[in-house]
């Protein structure tokens, strides 16, 4: 006898609670924010204003400079991660995944440690270390005879952004390292044996065998870095405050969003303009993700191994 099943209530019971919270506090606010960007405040009312907010943020002579500056800085921030963080992560992963190396577990545990700490904490730690008041960095540079290079890097308009980006690199290098390390471990041993028998040196094996095989992971790491960077806020806020000084030289989209939404100093915040900035960030991230999925990931073939 097959029991006649009624409406499958159990499916609803399983799925509804999570779906409800996710929809209410993540999906809906996001959609609402997108919609809000087409409105403006008029007294107590919100009225539809079409693309006026976008015109304001993107082209207004007074307002748009901040956005473009933040976008440019964010681009630099991202570029530093791609060019410094991911290659270091790759190098560390390549070394860790070498066979018969002792102490791998200890190395990877310790190198990953900074990634776990709050960005706020990391920001303060480096602020102290780089502070000319304390002089730790100068002393350390002195050991290798480079104390003349030392400067108040975080305080200077020309170097503050780069310094912050490098601090972020220092903190997060563990993530690309781990992801790449895992994909290197997934390469079958016999394949590396075959390369060894074919006479390939470790360096050649790395460039011609390992690297092409982990290319999809490198793509993934890049897009994850992109999402993380264009959504970053904490580090700049902790070290430089909402004003992202000196003179907005470290302002990125996250801090710009925060200021537009909550206001700063004399200027008042605006929900609708904040929503507009958030929507623009959403579009940028979406563009990046789309480019990755349709442009990059397709070409980076994943090979069955």
């Amino acid at each position: 006898m097959i029991k006649q099943r009624g409406f499958p209530f159990h499916i609803l019971v399983f799925i509804l609670p999570g779906l409800l919270i996710y929809t209410l506090f993540s999906a809906w606010p996001l959609l609402d924010t997108l919609l809000l960007s087409f409105f403006e405040e008029s007294g107590d009312q919100r009225v539809y204003s079409g693309l006026a907010n976008y015109r304001l943020v993107l082209t207004d002579p007074d307002l748009s400079a901040g956005f473009w500056n933040a976008l440019g800085n964010n681009g630099v921030f991202f570029l530093v991660h791609v060019l410094v963080q991911n290659p270091i992560g790759l190098l560390l992963a390549a070394l860790l995944s070498l066979r018969n190396l002792r102490g791998v577990r200890t190395y990877r545990t310790l190198i990953f440690m900074p990634t776990l700490l709050s960005v706020v904490i990391i920001g303060f730690i480096w602020q102290l270390i780089l502070s000319p008041l304390w002089g730790v960095s100068e002393t350390l540079l002195g050991y290798v005879g480079l104390e003349s290079l030392f400067d108040a890097w975080l305080g200077k308009e020309s170097s503050a952004l780069l310094t912050l980006a490098l601090i972020s690199v220092w903190q997060f290098v563990g993530i690309p390292m781990m992801l790449i390390y895992a994909s290197l471990l997934a390469i079958p041993d016999e394949l590396l044996d075959a390369a060894h028998v074919d006479g390939a040196s470790p360096l050649r094996t790395f460039w011609q065998i390992k690297l092409p095989l982990i290319a999809p992971t490198l793509g993934l790491v890049t897009i994850l870095t992109f999402i993380g960077n264009f959504n970053a806020f904490d580090l700049i806020y902790a070290v430089k405050g909402a004003l992202a000084g000196p003179n907005f030289s470290t302002d990125i989209l996250g801090t710009y969003f925060y200021r537009t939404f909550f206001g700063f100093q004399s200027s008042l915040g605006s929900s609708t303009l904040g929503a507009t900035v958030a929507t623009l960030m959403f579009l940028i991230i979406l563009a990046g993700v789309a480019l990755y999925f349709y442009g990059v990931q397709r070409r980076l073939q994943r090979y069955p191994m």
């Binding site: 016999e190 394949l191 074919d198 090979y303 191994m305």
Partner: peptide
């Protein structure tokens, strides 16, 4: 390579790319 051997592996170990 210097030994002058060539090997066929159980999983074939062909370079997939």
């Amino acid at each position: 390579r210097e030994r002058g051997i060539a090997m066929v592996f159980q999983s074939y170990a062909l370079y997939p790319h």
